[in-house]
């Protein structure tokens, strides 16, 4: 297959395994391109993309913008703090106004789950979800799985652990969907108060003993505790969380095997992971960041190639 089965990237839930394989194959070419002395191609020179970020972001925003610029696209950026949203404009109105200025593609980060889906139904544009509330963060999951594949090969039958704040994490849900499509076994490890209800229905298991979980896995994706999304306290204090679930050198030495460490960032050093582990040879955190640009280039390229050129 040489085409995506979808016209938007709203979530991994809507993708097929063949879509993920196509994205990975295309990302390999873009990874080579972003390592050239001149890292830019003119493919999307006739495409304009708007990055609409209604939530704070550093990595994802820069990664998307670099991906777009390296593909030769024109880019406009928008942040909610300095926009008419503050004056009461609806999301659909904001986006339709931007589209009226001949924008072809929208990258949306929004605190409300489902907002990219809503936009895809009420606007005439290609939508890429850059994170919608605690729902999905598809490009992060794709770059995580791509980084895992680079190191572990085919993920079928591989044991992947997700440690941390599963309840508030869009990265966790997208990763679960993507890893399942690729045939990996998934375990979650965190305080039970941070496990969403009905999560077992996604065919994942839960292990509250972090050492047992680490011994089981080939790779551990460590997630941040998202204090800003917590309306109440889900565990007594950071120190207890770190002691029980934080990755440190003692726990890694204890399991007596090499496992890959991933983290989508931003990292709270000393809380969910120590600096020693972040900077260890097992960590592929900076590979994830590099792969993020290649994966986003691949997604934008493949979605843009479904939008036929019109001289009018």
């Amino acid at each position: 297959m040489d085409k995506l089965s979808v016209d938007h990237l709203l979530g991994i839930k809507f993708l097929k395994k063949s879509d993920i394989n196509l994205i990975f194959k295309t990302a390999l070419h873009f990874k080579e391109i972003i390592n050239r002395p001149i890292k830019k191609v003119p493919t999307l020179r006739d495409i304009t993309i708007a990055n609409l970020f209604f939530e704070n972001s550093t990595r994802t925003k820069i990664s998307f913008e670099l991906a777009q610029k390296r593909l030769g696209a024109d880019v406009v950026n928008f942040s909610s703090s300095s926009s008419s949203v503050k004056k009461g404009e609806s999301l659909t109105d904001t986006v339709n106004n931007i589209l009226a200025m001949k924008v072809d593609m929208i990258v949306l980060r929004h605190p409300n789950p489902g907002s990219p889906l809503l936009l895809s139904k009420h606007t005439n544009s290609c939508i890429i979800n850059a994170g919608d509330g605690a729902h999905e963060h598809p490009t992060q999951a794709l770059l995580d799985c791509f980084s895992l594949t680079e190191n572990l090969g085919d993920l079928k039958g591989k044991n992947i652990l997700i440690v941390g704040d599963i309840l508030h994490s869009r990265v966790a849900l997208s990763n679960i969907y993507a890893l399942k499509l690729l045939g990996a076994n998934i375990k979650l490890s965190c305080p039970l108060s941070l496990i969403p209800r009905e999560i077992e229905s996604l065919d994942v298991s839960i292990e509250t003993d972090i050492l047992r979980a680490l011994k089981w896995c080939d790779a551990a994706n460590v997630l941040r505790v998202q204090k800003e999304r917590m309306e109440k306290s889900y565990f007594p204090n950071n120190r207890e969380y770190t002691m029980l679930f934080g990755l440190d050198i003692n726990k890694i030495n204890n399991i007596k095997k090499d496992i890959l460490i991933l983290h989508p960032g931003p990292i709270n050093r000393g809380v969910e992971i120590t600096s020693e582990i972040v900077e260890s040879n097992n960590s592929i955190i900076l590979d994830q960041v590099e792969n993020g640009v290649a994966i986003r280039m691949a997604i934008i390229y493949l979605l843009a190639s479904k939008m036929n050129f019109s001289i009018n």
Binding site: D2, T26, H29, L44, D46, A304, S305, K306, M307, N308
Partner: peptide
């Protein structure tokens, strides 16, 4: 690019 239904496939 975008001139046909086919996606251009890279090598």
């Amino acid at each position: 690019f975008r001139r046909s239904e086919k996606t251009l496939k890279a090598s």
